[in-house]
Amino acid sequence: MAAEPWQRYEIPGPIKAAVIKNPEMVSILLKKAKKPVLIVGHEAAEIDLGGKTPIDHIIRIARATNIPVVTTAHTMAEFLKRDFKPAASMTSMDIGNRLTDPEWSVSGEDAPHDLALILGMTYYVGFVIEAGLKSFAFNHLKTVSLDRYYQPHCNWSFPNLSIEEWDRYLTIIAQEIEKK
C-alpha cells in the first residue's frame, strides 16, 4: 500500500514521515542514535503474528541493544509474563509529554532522548502524540514508527503493511541488531 495515513482522514499537513522501505534502515538509525528509547503500547500485545506478538520482537531488540523500553497502557504485564522488565510504565500522554522535555530521560541520565521508536498505541492516539512530538520536541528528538500502519507525523514510518509483512519487517530489524 502507498504511504498514506491508515485512517483515511488523519491528514498531517505539509511534512510527512519518510517511508521505511528497507527495515535494515532502522538498525542504522539505532546505531547512529546516542540515546534511543522504545515505546510500546497495548496493541503490540493484542496482535497475533503467527504464534507470537510484536512484543516478542521488541524484547529481542531491547535485549540486543539495552535500549530502555517504556510501556504504555497496561502493556507492562505482557512483558513481565515474558520475564522482561521494562524500564518504565506510564500513560502514552505521559511519555509523549516527557519526551518534549530536553532535560528528561528514562534513566534520569544523559538527557534528552534523541530517538524514539514507537509502536502499539491506538492509531489515532499515536497520531496526535507524534504530532505533539513533531512540534514540541523537534529540536532534540527524531521519531520512528514501527507500527503496522503509516504514521505521518513521525520522522520515519513503516508504510501500511500486511500482518505478514509487518512480522517480516520486525524480524529483519531484530536479526540485524542481533548481528551487531
Partner: peptide, 18 residues
Amino acid sequence: FYLPFCDLCCLCTMGKCD
C-alpha cells in the same frame, strides 16, 4: 501537552499556515 490534529491553522484567509 498539546496534541495537534495537523500542522496547519485554517481559520482565516491569510492561511493556511504551517
